[in-house]
């Protein structure tokens, strides 16, 4: 699969959701891989990599460490070491909210709730009420 590294590096120059130096251990022994911020999240200031966060699972591994694994191979974990338990919780929370699918589900939830309460579709004001990605049917049951 081709992708342009320079595009990903440009993404790392966008405002970060969260940025810190974390210890990281990739799934393979000794492989120095990335830390992350944002939906697809590169390490600043000199990005070495990015992790797409769709359908990932964030698990606390120890008081101040967590791991990220992905659906296709849950045993393959990216381990992160934080400075404190607090920082660990902060990162885990941010990572769980960082996926596009999470945003989409939130949006559909709010849309549905508002429509029930007011009888109006709130997305009409943005002219995006017809978009497939905002329809309830788009959600996997």
């Amino acid at each position: 699969m081709r992708y342009n590294e320079k595009e990903l590096q440009a993404l790392s120059r966008q405002p970060a959701e969260l940025a810190a130096e974390l210890g990281m251990r990739g799934p393979k022994k000794g492989s120095g891989e990335p830390a992350l911020t944002g939906p697809l999240a590169p390490l600043c200031p000199q990005p070495v990599g990015a992790l797409l966060l769709e359908r990932c699972r964030v698990t606390q591994e120890e008081p101040s460490g967590f791991s990220i694994s992905f659906m296709e191979d849950p045993e393959r974990k990216y381990h992160f070491q934080c400075c404190s338990e607090e920082q660990c919780q902060e990162w885990m929370g941010a990572l769980r909210r960082a996926s596009y699918e999470f945003m989409r589900r939130s949006l559909i939830f709010y849309r549905n709730e508002i429509q029930k309460m007011t009888g109006k579709d709130p997305l009409e004001q943005f002219g995006i009420s017809e978009e497939a990605r905002f329809q309830l049917g788009g959600l996997k049951a």
Binding site: M1, L8, G49, L51, L52, E72, R133, K140
Partner: peptide, 17 residues
């Protein structure tokens, strides 16, 4: 610039809308 390509490819083919 590394990317978790396997997961990305998996996501591309997954049943997500």
């Amino acid at each position: 610039m590394k990317l978790n390509e396997r997961s990305v490819a998996h996501y591309a083919l997954s049943d997500s809308p």
